[in-house]
Simulated scan of single mutants.
Amino acid sequence: MPTGVAIRDVREQLFGAAERVLLRDGPSALTSRAVTTEAGCAKGVLHRHFEDFDAFLAALVEDRIARTHGWAAALRAAAGTGAVAGHLADALTELFESVAVAVVGLVSSRDELRARLRRTTPAGLPLLTEATAAIAAYLAAEQERGRIAADADIDTLAPTLVGAGHLLFADRKAAPPEPEAVRKAVAAVVAGVVRDTP
């Protein structure tokens, strides 16, 4: 690796490599050696920029969480347009077709990583917690517009939608679910509370 490379470039190179290993081989294959080999750099590069491997993994997860902010903003901006169930199905597909499912597996499998992430996400599972908050914000925006029933329990609907989405996409070895399967699951969860036209 050439000297003088900006730290952000090195971080992105390492994060991209970790994501590829995670998606291809799963959380158990994610080691500092696997990441630096995938990135095509010396093992010391990772340790020059991060305190240890769990610090690297925590930074990776936090970076991937930060990337969901644009997804969340786009979902909220869609409130008042189109079909509520359609927006939710599309949002869950976009979220879970990304690295999100693999990140959830990674966080679940590493105690030290979970402990580090508890500093910024004290409850719930990182990434799923932020996704649930984004879905809840969207549902609240639709509720304000009268497109979700006023008495709908958004605090229950949001995690139910995220949980259903996660289960549909959780098998990383199988093909992703068909769009119709995602739409059917969303429709079942929001049945009786949606007031828009399909």
Rank of each mutant, 00 (worst) to 15 (best):
G4C: 06
A89K: 00
M1Q: 14
G165F: 14
A158M: 01
G82C: 10
A140G: 06
R116C: 00
L167C: 03
I135C: 11
A89H: 05
R76G: 10
G82Q: 14
A59D: 12
I135T: 15
V21R: 15
G163W: 06
G80R: 08
L88G: 08
A55C: 07
R183E: 13
G165C: 13
C41Y: 06
E19F: 08
F15L: 07
D155I: 02
T197D: 12
L23F: 05
H47E: 02
A187D: 15
A170K: 10
F56A: 04
A83I: 03
H49Q: 05
P198Y: 15
E19A: 14
V101P: 01
E12H: 11
P122M: 02
T68N: 14
R8H: 12
A34E: 03
E178Q: 13
A164E: 13
V104Y: 08
V182N: 08
L113H: 08
A131M: 07
D90K: 10
D90N: 12
L127C: 05
L117P: 00
L57I: 05
A170L: 05
A102H: 07
L106P: 08
A152K: 06
L157P: 03
E112R: 15
F169A: 07
T160V: 05
L128Q: 15
R11A: 11
L168I: 12
R118A: 01
F96I: 10
V194T: 14
A115S: 09
G163L: 10
V101S: 09
K184N: 13
P2L: 13
H47Y: 14
M1T: 14
R24H: 11
L30Q: 04
V99I: 15
V186I: 08
G16A: 00
T68K: 12
R64K: 15
I7P: 11
F53P: 04
A66S: 13
A85I: 09
L57E: 08
E62F: 09
L57T: 08
A42Q: 11
R8Q: 09
E142D: 07
R67Y: 06
A174C: 12
R64D: 01
A174W: 07
R145C: 04
D9N: 14
T129G: 04
T156R: 10
R195T: 05
A58M: 01
E38F: 04
A133P: 10
A191H: 15
E180L: 15
A6E: 10
T31F: 13
A175V: 12
L60F: 12
A89E: 01
A123R: 12
A170V: 03
K173P: 02
A17H: 06
G26Y: 06
G40R: 11
R24L: 13
T81F: 06
S109M: 13
G163M: 09
L92S: 04
A66R: 15
L95D: 02
D52L: 00
R183L: 14
G124W: 04
L161P: 00
H47A: 03
R116V: 00
F50T: 09
R8F: 07
L92V: 08
P177Y: 05
S108P: 01
G192F: 00
L161C: 00
L22A: 08
